[in-house]
Structure formats: structure tokens, C-alpha cells
Simulated assay, not measured.
Amino acid sequence: MNAASPLPADTPPAWGRVRASRRIADRILKVSATLFSLISVVVLFWILGMLLVQGGTSLSLDVFTKITPGPGSEGGGLVNAIAGSLVLTLLGIAVATPVGVLAGTYLVEYGRGSILAAVIGFLNDVLLSAPSILIGLFVYTLVVQPMGTYSGWAGAIALAIIALPVIVRTTADMLGLVPSTLREAGAALGAPTSLVTQRVTWRAAKAGIVTGILLALARIAGETAPLLFTALNNNFWFSPSLMGGVSNLPVTIFQFASAPYENWRQLAWAGALIITVTILLISIVARYALRKDIVR
């Protein structure tokens, strides 16, 4: 009987020819995967529900217009902490973006297959999984101690180091998806590699690269540990020079949540809700951009 011949009429369906033990194992795996997925979804929505209830009742106009209150005082808000977090996060992503995009470009366009590119890729993967508190200690030793004071600049450097491997990896992955025929077409027209990279590959992968930047932004928006060793915190407006403690939302939430004052705990819930919603929106935008790039 050749491959094109139909099976005999009495041949059982494909699933019926599978041994009973394999069918049982398959069903057990399906039930286990479904059960644990449901558990994770329930836990996630439980946490989000608590955050919405506690944080939603704590939100008010004062949260966005008044500075953080002192110990034991009533009222107050988080405007100085929100502003400080915006400054630190934007500075960190501004430092990490050009370095990360250029490093990812080197890995794909210039150093492909070289020993240096392999070493950079390995170190980037190590840095990607490094605990953020170690990065905070590293920047504390490298920047804070020599300067003799905490500063927003040290905090921005720590956040930039955390964001850097995310941008490098995403940039390299997105450029790797660009068909080589586009590069060959540019080279056939006599364009140098630098011009082909700028005019062809970057344009083809721009949505994916922007997605990586947005993911890195979401990654560092809620970081607390590195800021404890670098920017620290204060209950007032930070100095324009960013020297000394700089108020920021993650550290404020950490301090207020562990304090014995009810007012501080309510503000901590409000701050946690603000960070969560911000990261959620950034993630949605990043996923939409990535999906749009893949569809194209």
C-alpha cells in the first residue's frame, strides 16, 4: 500500500490508536495546566482587586497636588514623589536608550559571529537577570560614596543600568527579524553598512525597538531597591541640581507602607495604584506596538 492509498475502513481514529496510558497522561497534564492557570489568574485578580479597593478609596485631588506629609500628620499627597519618579525614570531611560540601541545594533549588524559579540551578549544576559539591589549597591560604591551624598544622578544611573539589557536584547531580536534581502538590496545600491542600518534596518524594526524601550521603561518605573542606595528619599521637593535625597514614589510607598501611621498607609495604597496603572498602560502600548510590527 503506497502513501496515497486510503486507510482500511476498520482502522480506528488516530486518537484511538494512542495507548491508554498516554491518553491518561495527556488529560492529567491538561487538567493540571488549566488548574494552575486558574489559580494564577485568581491570585492576580485578588491582588488587583485589593489594590483597586484600597488604592481607589485613598485617591483624591490632594494626592496629585500636595507634598508628602510628615510623621503623624494628616492630609498631604504624593506630588513631589510622583515628580521625582518621573525625573529619575526619564533620565534613566534617556541614558539607556542610545547605549542599548547602539549595542543591540552592533550585535546584529557589525559583530555577528565574533567573539566580542558573544561576550557582550552573554554579559547582557547576566545583567538582565541580576538582582536590582546588587545594581544599587554597585552604583552606591561607584557614585554615591565618591560624591559623599545621595543624588538623583546616582538613582538615574542605577535605573539606566537596569533598563540597558532589556533594550539591548529587544533591539538585537528585532533587528534579527529583518530579512537579509533588505540589507543586500541596500548594499547592491552601493550604500555603506552604516547607511543601510539607518535607512533600512532601523526603519524596518522601529516598532520593535520602541517596544523594547517601553518595556524597559515599565521595568524601571517601580524599582525600589536600587533607589534606596542611590537617590534615597525625602518629604519635600527635591533640589533642581538633584543633589541630596530625591523624593520618589517607590521608596515613598516602601516607607509609608511599613509605617504605623494610618494616613501614610493610605497614601502608600494610592501610590501603589498609580504605579500599577502606569506600568499597565505602558505594557499595553508596548504589546500593541509589537503586535503591529509583527503583523506588518
Rank of each mutant, 00 (worst) to 15 (best):
L123Q: 03
I120A: 09
G49F: 02
G245R: 06
W237L: 13
G56W: 03
M243A: 09
L177K: 08
I135R: 03
A163L: 00
I82R: 06
A25S: 11
G212N: 09
N248C: 08
V168T: 03
L88Y: 03
A20C: 05
T105R: 01
A289F: 06
V246S: 06
T97S: 11
L182M: 15
N233I: 10
R296I: 10
I253N: 03
P12T: 11
L159V: 07
R219A: 04
V18W: 10
I82G: 03
L127C: 01
R265W: 01
L228W: 03
G222A: 12
L88H: 03
G77A: 08
S194F: 09
L88K: 04
A257Y: 12
L214V: 08
L228K: 04
S194V: 11
A270F: 01
L189I: 04
A185G: 10
G271H: 05
V41C: 03
L290A: 14
I115E: 13
P226C: 02
V42M: 10
V196Q: 01
F236R: 15
I24D: 11
D62P: 04
F64A: 04
F122P: 00
S58E: 02
V42F: 13
I115K: 14
R287W: 08
R296F: 07
R291N: 12
N235R: 15
W153E: 04
S5Q: 14
L281W: 06
V95W: 02
V99W: 05
A94K: 05
K206Y: 15
A81L: 03
F238Q: 05
L177P: 06
F64I: 09
L128G: 12
I275W: 02
Y288T: 10
T57R: 11
N2E: 13
F36K: 05
P6T: 10
T34P: 00
F254N: 14
N2T: 14
R203M: 04
A268Q: 05
P240V: 11
M147E: 13
D10P: 09
W15L: 15
T141Y: 10
A257W: 05
Q54W: 10
P250S: 07
W15N: 13
L249T: 09
A225F: 02
A257M: 14
G113Q: 08
A216P: 07
I120N: 02
V31H: 11
A268R: 07
P8I: 00
L38P: 01
S247Q: 05
E184I: 07
G148S: 06
P250A: 11
L214A: 13
A83K: 10
A231K: 05
S58D: 02
L137C: 01
L134C: 09
Q198K: 13
